[in-house]
Design a protein around this nucleic acid. Structure first.
Lengths: 342, 342
DNA sequence: TTGTACGCGTTATCAA
DNA sequence: TTGATAACGCGTACAA
C-alpha cells in the first residue's frame, strides 16, 4: 500500500507523528546517530520516512548549524575543456568528502564575477574555488576577510589571502622551449591572449622571453584577443613566417584556445605542420587527429582539482589558525607528436 | 573609515541595530520594497549594510518562503561538449530570470544519479533539468509526484510526467541520410553507443534502419561501448569496408563521442575521408580541422538550453494547473565539409 | 533510550 | 511609514 505523497515535501515533524516518535529521534536517525535508537524505533522511522518521501531539508540544516555543505566554484569560461576537466576533479573530490558543488560561469566578465560571488556568498558556501576573470573585487576581499577558505585556480591575485593551485608555468615554458630547441627549431613565435591581469598568461609570456636568450633562440610574442581579431592573427603569423632567412620556425601556443585558433589559421594558409613547428599548452581530444598530430603539454587536471579541494578542506578543519597561503604548482606532461618533428 | 568586517557573516538583526531600525525594515529594504521606506531610513540601512558587508542569507530566505531560487541540473557526462553547451544556455537563461543553477554530474552512473537527485531535492530546488543516465528511479518519481517541474534533456523517460526538450532525432537522421544519398554513398555503417535505456539513441537507430530502405540504401548498425572496445570498433569498420563490391561507403556517427572514436580508428587504418564518407551528429571545434573537414549535424544547443528553462518557469508560474507534458524537438543544421564529398 | 524547548536568519501578518 | 511577533524545518542542550 503506497500513500500518495503530499505536494509539499514532508517535514521532520510529519515523519515523527507518522512514526509515533519525536522530532529528536527522527533527527538522530538522519544525522548518523541511528545507533542510539532502538531497533524497533529505527524501523518505524524508516518506514514512515519512506512512505512520505522524506528528505532532511538542507536549507534548514545549514541555517541551524551554519554548515551548508556547499562548496562554490567560479569558472571563467565553462566552455573551455581545461576548466571542465578541473571542475570534474573538483566535483569528484567534493562528493567524496560529502560536499556539493555550486558552479557559476562568468564568461570572463568581471561584472558577472562580482555578481556570482555575491550569490555564492548568499548561499553561505563554506569554501570557494575560483578561476578569476579580473582583478580582485571588493566582493572577493570581503569573502577573504571573513575567513572563508579561498583557492585560486590557475590565476593568482595579489592582495588576496588565498591558496593558489595551478600549473608550474615557468616549468611548462621551459619544457616547451627545450623540446623545440632540441628538435632544431631556432626561431619562435609565442601566441597568447592578452596577458593583462591574468597571472598565468603573464608568467608564461615572461618566461618565454627570458628563456629564448638562455637557449640561443630568437623569437617574439604575439598577444591578441582571439575573437574579432582573426585578421591580426593571420597577419602576425604570415609576417613571422616571411622573415628573411630560413631557420626552422615554430609556433608556441599559450593555451588550448590559442592552439585552436592558430591551427585554423595555419590550415587556411596551407602551412605544413612539422616543417613549421607547433606546440600547444593544454591537451585536447583532437590534437592527435590533425595530421601529423599536434605536440602538447598536458596539464594534470584531475590532480589540480583534487588539490584545490584538499587545500579548502584543510583550511576548513583548521578554521581559526589561519595558516599562510600556499602555492601548489604542478608539472605538465609533454606529448610529442608530428607537429614538432622536422 | 572602514569597520573591520566580522568573521561571521552579519545578520539582518545586526544591520537593524546598527542602523537603528527594525528587522522588518531591513528585510523590506532587501526584498524590493525600498519604496515603502523613507529616504532617510533607506540611507541608514544602506550604510550599515555596507559597513558590515551584509548579504541576505538565502538559506534562511528559502526556509521561510519556500523559494530557494535554485534550479538543479543533472548532467550525464560533464565532459561532453554538447552537454556543456546546453548547460551554458541553461545557466544563462536561469540567471536572466534570477535563478541560480546547481549542477551535478553523474558520469552516466544510475547509482550516482539517484544520489545526486536526492541531494538536489534536499536543497529544495524549484525545478530540475535532467539528462538522465538510466531508467526512471524512485527518486525521480518522488520528485515528479511532488509536482516539482521536470525537464528531460535529450533523453526521454516513460512513466515520468515531464516535459522533454531535445533534438528532432528522426529529422536529424533523415537529414543525414538524404545528404549521404545525395552525395552518392550507397552503403552505410551506423555507429552508436549501446542504445539500451537511452531514448535518443534508440530513436536515431530506429530511424536509420527505416530510412535505409526508403532511399534504396543498404547498410547496418554497429552498437558498442566506446571504452574498452577499441578492438571491436576497428573490427567492425574493417569488416564493413572489406565487403564484396565497391559501392561508395559512408559511416554515420550517432554522436560526438562516436565521431571522435571513429575518426581515430579511420586514421589508424589509413582511410581517406571523402572517398569513405563520414558524417557525425554534434558539431565539435575540431571537425573543420581534420582534413578534408568532417561533415556534421550541429544541434542548436543554446536554443535547447533556453527552451528547457522556459518550460520550467512556465510550470513554476502555473503551479497547480498541471498542464500535460510537452515535447519540443529542434532541428539540427547540416554543416557540409569534405568528408562527404567524393 | 526518548522527548521538550529554544534558536538559527528570514519573511509575513498584524498592529501602531 | 514603521515595528513586534510568529512561523519556516531543523539540531541540540537538557531533562525525563
Amino acid at each position: 500500500m503506497t500513500t500518495t505523497p503530499p505536494l509539499r515535501r514532508a517535514t521532520i515533524l510529519e515523519v515523527a507523528r507518522s512514526a509515533g516518535a519525536s522530532k529528536t529521534s527522527v533527527s538522530r536517525y538522519f544525522s548518523g546517530e541511528r545507533e542510539r535508537l532502538s531497533r524497533e524505533l529505527q524501523a518505524r522511522i524508516a518506514e514512515a520516512a519512506r512512505c512520505l518521501g522524506y528528505r532532511p531539508n538542507q536549507m534548514a540544516r545549514g541555517l541551524k548549524g551554519g554548515h551548508s555543505r556547499l562548496i562554490g566554484m567560479l569558472v571563467a569560461d565553462i566552455r573551455n575543456p581545461f576548466s571542465v576537466a578541473v571542475m570534474h576533479g573538483v566535483e569528484q573530490a567534493c562528493r567524496e568528502q560529502g560536499y556539493s558543488l555550486l558552479v557559476c560561469n562568468t564568461d570572463n566578465d568581471p561584472a558577472q564575477e562580482r555578481a556570482r560571488l555575491a550569490l555564492l556568498a548568499s548561499y553561505r558556501v563554506e569554501g570557494l574555488v575560483i578561476n578569476v576573470a579580473g582583478r580582485p573585487s571588493r566582493e572577493l576581499h570581503t569573502l577573504a576577510d571573513q575567513g572563508i577558505p579561498l583557492v585560486l585556480l590557475d590565476r593568482e591575485l595579489d592582495l588576496v589571502e588565498a591558496d593558489v593551485v595551478g600549473l608550474d608555468n615557468a616549468g611548462a615554458i621551459d619544457m616547451a622551449l627545450d623540446h623545440l630547441a632540441g628538435q632544431g627549431y631556432g626561431e619562435l613565435l609565442y601566441v597568447s591572449e592578452p596577458p593583462e591581469q591574468i597571472s598565468s598568461r603573464q608568467r608564461r609570456l615572461e618566461r618565454f622571453r627570458q628563456g629564448l636568450g638562455e637557449r640561443g633562440l630568437t623569437g617574439e610574442a604575439l598577444c591578441l584577443a582571439l575573437e574579432g581579431q582573426e585578421g591580426a592573427l593571420t597577419d602576425g603569423i604570415t609576417t613571422f613566417l616571411a622573415r628573411p632567412g630560413r631557420p626552422p620556425r615554430a609556433l608556441l601556443c599559450a593555451n588550448g584556445n590559442v592552439t585552436l585558433a592558430v591551427t585554423r589559421t595555419l590550415q587556411r594558409l596551407g602551412i605544413r605542420l612539422g616543417e613549421t613547428g607547433l606546440l600547444g599548452i593544454d591537451e585536447l581530444d583532437w590534437c592527435e587527429l590533425v595530421p601529423p598530430g599536434i605536440t602538447t603539454l598536458a596539464q594534470p587536471t584531475a590532480m589540480i582539482g583534487q588539490a584545490a579541494v584538499d587545500r579548502l578542506l584543510q583550511r576548513l578543519e583548521a578554521s581559526g589558525h589561519r595558516a599562510p597561503p600556499r602555492r601548489l604548482h604542478y608539472q605538465p606532461t609533454l606529448i610529442s607528436r608530428g607537429s614538432t618533428r622536422r
